[in-house]
């Protein structure tokens, strides 16, 4: 019974992992890739860890698996946010099909949309004091 439940949970996790990595290959720019891959792979790996705990090989293994799931749930969104922010600040442009860029509009309201990912120039007026954010 435990084995069947663990197989089902791990199978769901594997499907999420695989779909996340397919999204990593298929999607058009880095911002799409980071959102698809991070969310799917975080949930998928947490399901695999949960399945390891449900399988119940030993109590220590289950506790470590749940601890690792908590770590991944805490660290993976932070890492994805840092990568996306670093990508924007290093000048990676959005895909041409993107419809909105709220971060750029807030940060560089005076620029045309194509130039918002460029680094800030000296003396330029920045939006609403959010430069240090």
């Amino acid at each position: 019974m435990n084995e069947t439940a663990a197989q089902i949970i791990i199978g769901v996790g594997l499907a999420f992992d695989l779909f996340g990595c397919i999204g990593l290959v298929r999607l058009p720019d880095v911002y799409n890739r980071v959102q698809a891959a991070t969310k799917c792979v975080t949930l998928g790996t947490c399901f695999i860890l949960l399945g390891t705990a449900v399988y119940g090989m030993s109590a220590a293994m289950g506790i470590k698996a749940m601890l690792c799931a908590v770590f991944i749930l805490l660290t993976s969104p932070v890492a994805a946010h840092a990568i996306a922010r670093g990508a924007y600040k290093s000048g990676v442009r959005l895909w041409e099909g993107s419809v909105v860029d709220l971060y750029g509009e807030e940060k560089h309201p005076s620029r045309p949309p194509d130039e918002r990912t460029e680094p800030a120039q000296a003396g330029e007026t920045l939006g609403a004091g959010r430069e240090s954010g």
């Binding site: 990593l24 880095v30 891959a37 792979v41 998928g44 790996t45 860890l49 994805a80």
Partner: peptide, 17 residues
Amino acid sequence: APDRTVAIDILGTLVVG
């Protein structure tokens, strides 16, 4: 470079699984 960084992050999470 950010594409590669994303892929390295995802690869690390896959190794945990």
